[in-house]
Design a protein around this nucleic acid. Structure first.
Length: 291
DNA sequence: CTTGTGGCCTGAGGGC
DNA sequence: TGCCCTCAGGCCACAA
């Protein structure tokens, strides 16, 4: 088992579960955290004071960020970034579910609690109004969500930049929601070397990559998430990503497509798994009359 | 503008 | 078996 972290699909599944569990309309009674240093925009004291009595009016996702919209004359948002090991659990009984990796609790009227669990303490929580969120260096520059963005916009935003495709895909300012797993999987489907320069990519290649990324995301959501270890659904179920995984973490195995051994390298600062045979940097164009 | 490195963290897993 | 060490990764700060 390899390290698998929450990416867009986990956040999307969390969102769906929270909607199913009908937390919309619930009134917040209190907020607690043991990691005030992981809070953005508001301090723990200020959140606690400000959040009481507000109603959860929306549950949304953009990229890897989950937003709980809160009622009030001055609307607020409580937003979560799970980073590597975060997850949300809806619990009735805190004593039963709270453990040493519980970093924050949102207490709801009626006895339910939203627990933010994050063993590695990398997760981030924002609290603030729309204007404050816009001024945050991460949220304020977050690109369009990968499941929402059109091909036209995806192409336009990528083409404005230069560099290697993998590092651009991971840049949340261009489009949001792509993490290391999705990037490696999609590049494999698209038969692109992760170090391919964006400037050298054809429109057709980018179009295929666009649809492969969306296909990978949809497949992982359908499989129930990438969870192998850190992440779990709010209701405790685990993900079935193993079944759809094609390249990520298969370092010493053979490519599902060409049966040659896959490679592992550090690219864009991340562990990267790819098939050197299928994913060549310079694709030789098909000779006229070929194929 | 770009790339690279170290730091934040803890738990898993390899080596012995 | 159990200890030690390295690695995993999203993002940021900082340097080149």
């Amino acid at each position: 088992m390899k390290n698998i972290m929450p990416e867009l699909p986990e956040v999307e599944i969390t969102k769906q579960k929270l909607i199913e569990q009908k937390i919309k309309g619930a009134v917040v009674e209190d907020f607690w955290t043991d990691r005030p240093q992981n809070l953005k925009l508001f301090s723990d004291i200020k959140i606690q004071k400000d959040i009481r009595g507000r109603k959860i009016i929306s549950i949304e996702r953009r990229g890897k960020v989950l937003f709980l919209g809160l009622s009030g004359r001055d609307k607020k948002n409580l937003a979560f970034h799970f980073r590597m090991s975060g997850r949300l659990i809806l619990a009735e009984d805190v004593k039963k579910f709270k453990d040493t990796s519980t970093r924050a609790i949102v207490f709801l009227k009626g006895g339910k609690k939203i627990l933010f669990r994050d063993p590695r303490k990398f997760g981030v929580i924002w609290y603030g109004g729309p204007d404050e969120l816009k001024q945050d260096p991460y949220l304020g520059f977050l690109g369009p969500d990968m499941l929402e963005v059109t091909f036209r916009v995806f192409l336009e935003r990528l083409k404005k930049r230069k560099g290697k495709i993998k590092s651009l895909l991971l840049d949340q300012k261009i489009v949001s929601g792509i993490g290391n797993i999705i990037a490696d999987e999609a590049l494999w489907y698209s038969k692109l070397h992760p170090e391919t320069e964006i400037k050298k990519m054809s429109k057709a290649q980018i179009r295929k990559l666009y649809s492969d990324i969306r296909r990978v995301i949809h497949n992982i959501i359908k499989a129930g998430g990438t969870t192998l270890r850190d992440w779990a659904h709010p209701d405790g179920k685990e993900g079935g990503y193993e079944k759809v995984r094609r390249i990520y973490g298969r370092g010493k195995k053979n490519c599902f497509r060409c049966k040659n051994p896959v490679s592992r390298a550090v690219i864009a600062g991340r562990g990267t798994t790819f098939c050197p045979k299928c994913q060549k940097i310079d694709k030789v164009s098909t000779p006229a009359g070929g194929r």
